[in-house]
Each structure stands twice: as structure tokens, then as C-alpha cells.
Design a protein around this nucleic acid. Structure first.
Ligand SMILES: [Mn+2]
Ligand SMILES: [Mn+2]
Ligand SMILES: [Zn+2]
Ligand SMILES: [Zn+2]
Lengths: 138, 138
DNA sequence: TTGCAAATGCAACAGTATTGCAAATAATTC
DNA sequence: GAATTATTTGCAATACTGTTGCATTTGCAA
């Protein structure tokens, strides 16, 4: 199994819990909240364990946090070379206001902006709200 | 008092609670969370009333919500012609990672971006993290 | 296979926010 | 100005999200 390798490469133990969680995230193809994860795997694993799994994956650079405009926390697979020392997820996120799906726009960097005051920029975060492909035709 | 007028123009009753809250927001010059508001006015007004005041001001177009990258909810004065039908707060927000202050960059619009998929864009949200003027020299 | 470190489950707790309802207050009508 | 009506407020209860402590289980390496 490839997921096991991915977990090991990030210095975590590939437990059944972690394998199932990661399988779910990979399959989802979008950002998933703890609540949605719990709805899927809550019978099998404890609510708190799922919280800790998400935290562990985030720290390890396997998942990254995604916020929509209402502050809802979701997680999504890291694509590149994130690890426990650094995340590299500075891409745009899209949030569908119809179905509430949120996902990464991997290949679009967040544009730089000229801000007038003498402020030091460290990072940028950007969410685009709109209608996704599925909801458009419906 | 000018604040009274502002509240009335948005079809709300200018109670002492609302006047004090609005005075605080105007003075603050930055985004303020419910907790910070409660720390200032909690002796005088009920915690829940403050929640409802913020909600009422938001619905009326007097305040708008601001989220930082950690999902913390703050509110800030609306500058333009927001009302109960529409908000017009599509500017960038700046969050200082040192002092946690968050404020509006009123005069900088959020840049448009070309997203590849056929997604319908409705609005954009952007937060810049960095170091503010005060913290820079410290 | 034994020993140790990491991971899990359960219980308790913390922080933030919402809802129902009765009392208080503001605006409107007389 | 007093009576009537609608809005606002305070308090209690509740919900939701997330964290922490601790005993038990599991994975891994010696
Ligand atoms: Mn992403
Ligand atoms: Mn703003
Ligand atoms: Zn959608
Ligand atoms: Zn600062």
C-alpha cells in the first residue's frame, strides 16, 4: 500500500486509524472538516483520535488547513514537499457557496499585492467564493 | 452625536448599548473580536447582548466580519455604502503575527485571478500576514 | 520476545456561539 | 403625556468545536 509509505516517510506510525483517514482524504479530492470525517469514520475511531490524527498529519506536512470565508476549518492533502519543518501550500482555495465544497486550486499562486503602508509581508491567504462545476449545471 | 445618526440610518434603535459598542469600534481603528469587546464593555452589558449587537450591526451593514488565518472572528467598521441588502467590503485585510492585530487595508482591492477550471467567481477574500508598524520597531 | 515510545479511547473540561423566554426599553399612536 | 406596540436586553439553558489528563493498547526496534 502506498499510503503506508507516505505516512512512514513523514515519521509517523501507519496505524489503521491513520491509514483510513488518509484513504478518505485522498478519495475525497476536496477539503474535509473534522465533522465530515467523524461522520464517515466515527463508528470506527474515536472523535478525539480523529482530532489528533488531523493535528499529527498537519504537523507532519501531510495535510494542510483550509479556511473558508466563514472560518470553517477543513483539511486537504498537501501536494508538494511539505514536511514537519515547512509547509508549501501557498495556493488559492475555492469555496462553492452552493454545496459548501472547498478545494485547492493547486496550480494558481496567490498574487502579490502592493500594500501602501510600511508593513512587512510574510504570507498571503486567499479564498475565492463562487459556484463549482457540479452546482453550475444544477 | 454622529453615531446615533449612523445607527438610525441603518434602521436600528440607537440604544446605549449600541452607541457604546459603536464608539468602541470607531475608536479602535482595527478589527475587534467579541472577546475583546466583552473585556471592555462586559461590566456594562451582557455577553449575549454583545453577540447580538455585533450580529445586528453586521446585518445592517455597519460592521463586517474579518477572519484571520486561524479562523478567529473579528469585526471592523464598514467604510462605504454597506446596508442590509449588500456589503461592499472587498478589500484586503492585514494580520500582524506578532501582536495579533488585524485591520482593513481600505484602499487596496483584492486582485483578480485567473482560475483555470470553469468555475464561477462571486467574491474573493484575502488576508496578508506579516508584521505591523508597531511591532516592526520593537 | 521483551521493553519502550507512540498512539488511542474515554472522561473531563474549555471556549465560542446560539436559542427561548420574560422583563425592560424605545418608538408610535392617541 | 399616557397607552400601545415592536424591539432590545438579560439570564438560563444548550450546542458545537476543540483541548487536556490519564490509563490502556499498539507498533517498533533491540
Ligand atoms: Mn490547499
Ligand atoms: Mn475590512
Ligand atoms: Zn458546489
Ligand atoms: Zn503588530
Amino acid at each position: 500500500m502506498e499510503l503506508k509509505e507516505l505516512i512512514k516517510r513523514h515519521n509517523l506510525r501507519p496505524t489503521s486509524n491513520r491509514l483510513e483517514v488518509l484513504k478518505f482524504y485522498r478519495k475525497a479530492g476536496k477539503a474535509v472538516s473534522h465533522g465530515e470525517l467523524d461522520a464517515e469514520l466515527g463508528e470506527q475511531f474515536d472523535r478525539i483520535t480523529l482530532y489528533r490524527t488531523l493535528k499529527a498529519f498537519e504537523d507532519a506536512g501531510i495535510l494542510h488547513k483550509v479556511y473558508d470565508e466563514k472560518g470553517i476549518v477543513r483539511y486537504s492533502m498537501c501536494s508538494h514537499d511539505c514536511d514537519n519543518t515547512q509547509h508549501q501550500d501557498n495556493h488559492i482555495h475555492f469555496h462553492c457557496t452552493s454545496c459548501e465544497a472547498t478545494f485547492c486550486i493547486e496550480n494558481v499562486e496567490i498574487p502579490q499585492v502592493q500594500i501602501p503602508q510600511n508593513l512587512i509581508v510574510e504570507s498571503r491567504y486567499m479564498v475565492i467564493n463562487g459556484t463549482c462545476n457540479n452546482c453550475k449545471r444544477a
